[in-house]
Design a protein around this nucleic acid. Structure first.
Length: 286
DNA sequence: TTGCAGGGGTCAA
DNA sequence: TTGACCCCTGCA
């Protein structure tokens, strides 16, 4: 293990770790009492501090960041321009964008996102994080050089686990879905890569054919893995905020999704994230 | 302390 | 369209 600690400043525009890591898109980033953020990403443990708008990574140089982590932080996307464009749409969105101005949509591992959002159904953030953590602890592999960091379990580890053992993560009925989905991916090893190359609509159909994955979870998987940034997941919070700000009446999820894809266009998914964070933090629509 | 409602939904009837 | 599903948290 490398005992020395190096800090490297990395400039990430339009980024605030509080906004990005707590806006509900990821479940494996935590802040300790000193303000340091630790995240487990693609089998590595990342640590960073954020002070006065500057980002300092532990043990990662700028070059390594550019080579290995730039894609994860979606560095190829100009969030400044996106925020400007969305803010011009209407006053509601301008407020939401301003409120969550440090949100960047991470490009996360497809398998991890798939299982994590399968777990998210009918669940709250705190419990989702708990279940994901437990799943990694019991079925992932320890990451060398760290005390208690574990990889996200691969599909074989989850497929091979008896259901009663899987239940150790306290996922309830979702464990049946995890097991069934893991077995499907274990039996069809190329399916995960195929999903990445299929047209967006087709990828969505494949996801919807999997047990435990409905419209909302499928859209989350597409959006947060980076496969489709125009996906617009409609959960309870998004339904509430859209009804309160745009429809002014009760509206079904399908209509909200159709309106949003039309109104926000290719930026629908990013708009959704600003709106979701804005709604949840300010309890809009309750 | 206890009971109940609701939670970033999905599925089967 | 509706209720069951696991289990946990927040609240009265």
């Amino acid at each position: 293990m490398n005992s020395k600690t190096n800090f490297s400043r990395v400039d990430i525009n339009d980024f605030n770790p509080v906004h990005t890591f707590t806006c509900g898109q990821c479940f494996r980033w935590d802040q300790d009492e000193n303000g340091t953020w630790t995240g487990i990403v693609s089998g590595s443990c990342l640590r960073l501090n954020w002070k006065d708008g500057a980002c300092f990574f532990y043990d990662i140089g700028e070059q390594e960041f550019n080579n290995r982590w730039a894609s994860y932080f979606d560095m190829g996307t100009d969030y400044g321009a996106i925020k400007e464009e969305l803010s011009r749409k209407d006053e509601h969105l301008r407020r939401a964008v301003s409120f969550g101005s440090g949100i960047r949509l991470l490009r996360q591992d497809l398998w991890e996102v798939l299982i994590s959002f399968l777990i998210s159904q009918n669940n709250g953030m705190a419990r989702i994080k708990q279940i994901v953590h437990s799943l990694c602890l019991h079925f992932g592999k320890p990451i060398p050089g760290t005390c208690d960091c574990y990889t996200f379990p691969d599909f074989s580890s989850l497929a091979d686990a008896p259901l009663e053992k899987l239940n150790i993560c306290r996922g309830g009925y979702r464990c049946r879905y995890i097991s069934a989905v893991a077995q499907i991916f274990k039996e069809s090893l190329s399916l995960l890569d195929e999903l990445k190359t299929l047209p967006k609509q087709k990828a969505r159909e494949v996801l919807l054919s999997l047990p435990g994955i409905g419209e909302k979870v499928a859209d989350c998987i597409l959006l947060y893995s980076g496969l489709d940034r125009s996906a617009f997941p409609v959960d309870r919070w998004v339904k509430r905020v859209m009804e309160a700000l745009y429809f002014h009446r009760e509206t079904d999820e399908k209509s909200i999704r159709a309106f949003s894809r039309e109104y926000f266009g290719e930026l629908a998914g990013i708009a959704q994230q600003y709106l979701f964070y804005y709604a949840r933090e300010n309890r809009i629509g309750l």
